[in-house]
Structures are given as C-alpha cells and as structure tokens.
Amino acid sequence: MSRKVAALVLAAGASSRLGQPKQLVEFHGERLIDRAIRIAQQAGASPIFVVLGAEHERILDALTTSDSGTRILINKGWKRGMASSLALGAAAAERVGADDLLVLTCDQVTVTPEHLMRLMEGSHREHVVASYYSGRRGIPALFPDFAFHALQDLTGDTGARDLLQDDAVFTVPLPGGEFDVDTPEDLHRLRAMEHDSAHSRVQIGSIEDTKRSPAEDLA
C-alpha cells in the first residue's frame, strides 16, 4: 500500500535578523519559499502545507505556485515560536489522513528533492528520520503519524529538536545542511554560492563546446 506523505514548509517567522522576509529572497531566480514548495513536490509529497505568519499577506501575493496540492496555513500565534507552526501543520496532516509528515524550512538551499526522498525512504512508518549535519540532527525531517500528537504538544522556539534526539531516530547525511539564511552575512554567502554555481555551469558549457566530434570537424 502506498504511503500518503504530506509536507510542511515552515515559513512563519519575521526574519528580524535578516531585515527582510527570507521567504522572498531569490536564489537562481526563484524565491526561497517557491523553491521549498517545488522540491517537496518533486520529492512526491502531497498535500504541501505552507505555514505563514509574519507579513503573510505580502508573501501570499508573491507566491507563484498554483498547484491545488499546496495549502496555506496562517499561524496567528507565530510570535510564540516555531513549535506553534509545527503543531498547526501536524494537526493539518492528521486531518487529511497523512501517513507521514515531511518538515522543512524555506531557507536551507542545500536541500534537494533527492535528499527529501531519502528521508522518505528511510522511515517505513516505523521511525522518525532526521537530516544529519554539523554533528547534530535537524530538519528536514520526516515524522510518521505516531509522532503527530507529540508535534502538536511542542511549545517554544526549539521546534522539534527534542524529538529528534531519541536513539530510535534514523539519520540521513545532508552536507551543508547547517547553512540557512538568517543574517545579512548569510545572504552575502548565498549570493556567493549563486555566483560560484553559475560560473561552474559556464565553465562546463565552455568545455562541452570544445569537444567537437569528427563529423563536426569535417563540416
């Protein structure tokens, strides 16, 4: 029997240290919130719940997704911390009968659809599966339905950190997972990453252009 994996994109914070909504920061021409929705879709999650809070009207206006599988949740209590968004998302996943809930933020740009799929493959509905980076467990993480009530009972701004410390939690390595966009310095680093990857693509294209076939040489 196939599993119903819902996703929860945490995007309710005020980005106070960054000085602008991180949700609307662009990376390779794509807003971070749109990117998070896209990679969750590409991993096969549905429905995708997006929790908004601070400046939710501005962010809603900027969203480009038109997929009916994306559902917006407004967290009026977003100032209480990340736990309030997790509780909101877990309750929504429970209502739609999801077997698992894949939790991710919008600003971890090293996360790929392939990594999310590896989290999903590691669970079998028996284990919480967390990403592993910088010597610790964190999100993105996948929570089977047995953990939904625990997510709804969380309080404060530590998120699901305590739930991920159990010895029964499986882990999937995520190189660079510690990088997120919280400060102007992080944004500067993001721009450098963007430039470096674009430069690499140009170099690869130049190398490929020089690899002419014998037929091309005779043309």
Rank of each mutant, 00 (worst) to 15 (best):
A93W: 13
K79N: 08
L63G: 04
T110M: 11
L60T: 05
L163V: 03
E94Q: 15
E114V: 10
L151Q: 09
D100F: 01
F143K: 01
A147K: 08
D99I: 04
K211S: 07
D217L: 15
H56N: 11
F49M: 02
V25G: 00
V51N: 05
R3N: 06
A98K: 01
D100S: 08
R80Y: 11
V181Y: 00
L164V: 05
W78S: 05
R58C: 05
S200P: 02
F148P: 00
R95A: 14
E114H: 11
I207H: 10
L32G: 03
G29R: 05
I72C: 04
I39Y: 04
L52C: 06
D100H: 14
A147Q: 11
V51H: 03
A14R: 12
E194K: 12
R189Q: 14
A90G: 05
R161M: 12
I207A: 12
W78L: 10
R3Q: 12
A90E: 02
T158C: 06
S131R: 02
L119T: 01
H199I: 06
K79T: 11
A43Y: 13
K211C: 14
L116E: 04
D145A: 13
G97R: 13
R35W: 07
L86V: 03
F148S: 00
M117H: 07
P184L: 03
Q152F: 01
S16D: 11
S84L: 08
L18R: 08
L104K: 00
D162G: 08
S197H: 10
T171Y: 05
D107S: 04
L174C: 02
F170Q: 09
S131K: 03
L187K: 03
V128H: 00
V51C: 13
H115V: 06
G177M: 10
F179R: 10
A40F: 01
R161W: 12
M82E: 13
M193F: 15
D186I: 10
G77V: 05
S16W: 10
L63N: 12
L32I: 10
F143G: 00
P113S: 08
P47R: 09
D100K: 10
D145K: 15
H115P: 02
K22G: 14
A130T: 08
G176I: 07
F179H: 12
I72Q: 02
I37A: 01
H56M: 03
G177Q: 07
T70A: 12
I72W: 01
P144S: 09
V129N: 03
R161V: 09
A93T: 08
H124I: 01
R137V: 01
R125K: 14
D180W: 05
D157S: 15
K79C: 10
R161E: 13
D153A: 14
E194R: 12
I139C: 04
S15K: 04
D182M: 15
L60W: 10
V129M: 05
E57W: 03
R95V: 07
